[in-house]
Amino acid sequence: MDRRSFLRALAITGAAMTIKESGAMTLMSQRIGGASAARNSGAYDLVAVMGGNPAEMFRKGIAEMGGMERFVKKGFKVVVKPNIGWDKRPELASNTNPDLVAEIVSQCYKAGAKEVIVFDHTCDDWRKCYDNSGIESAAKAAGAKVIPAHESSYYREISLPKGVSLKSAKVHEAILDSDVWINVPVLKNHGGAKMSISMKNHMGIVWDRGFFHSHDLQQCIADICTLEKAAVLNVVDAYRLMKTNGPRGKSESDVVLSKGLFISQDIVAVDTAATTFFNQVREMPLESVGHLAKAQAHRLGTMDIDKLKVKKIKL
């Protein structure tokens, strides 16, 4: 092979790689597994656990939800999406607890998942976040594939027909190409959005966060959650919560060791429950967290958690 043909081969290979799946193909590959499915089954709508370590609380909680097998089937490609937004140690509660992420990853594999991917579109330098959060090493040790999300080419445009302010968004292809994805936020106060929980964690699957901030943040957070491929499960890490200076936090004085965990398929309910839990530490009326009511208006779930089948476990 001479140089010219080698280069030509290289160029053709490169060009071939730019071919991407179209939106129609994505639609075909989607599966239905939304909140409605859960309500019809006998299991609980929302499970709240307190008093254990993160992995232990998740094991108890997911068992009450009917086991991971209910959500992850054999051969599934799964994405576990924690919050890895900041270059911070786990003790500072800016990111999801690494032990929890690892436990969820291993449970996915136990349920028969073919592949588990972990990523987040970070705010600080992604390599530092992945490293210092402890999530990359914990997830990899559990067998997950940890992938980058710092380049726009990893994202594909999807339309959000139900969106009010946000009509379309570029979403990470790992989410779009997965069979199911599990949303694993950490419970934090947020200077702008008031709270950062499951719904706010969607800002880590999109490329252009700036648009959210400049086009009615609360509405955009509710709008992105209308995406076709909704998270099959929301697991809120409240082992440590950030009560002040969120979502980045300054020091350990912002952190409360609250030892909680909330699991639900209903994203509005789980965020409502977590906000109510947070309210015990610092006043946070549900009305002030604008995206909750907006998401309820989108029929994404309910803020009326008293009407749900809730299981509370204290360890």
């Binding site: 200077g191 702008g192 943040l217």
Partner: peptide, 20 residues
């Protein structure tokens, strides 16, 4: 200007020299 929430600046501030 828009009367909507934002807080992106404070979110990124390591010392909370910008707070909401």
């Amino acid at each position: 200007t828009d009367g909507t929430s934002c807080g992106a600046c404070s979110e990124h501030c390591p010392t909370q020299a910008v707070s909401m």
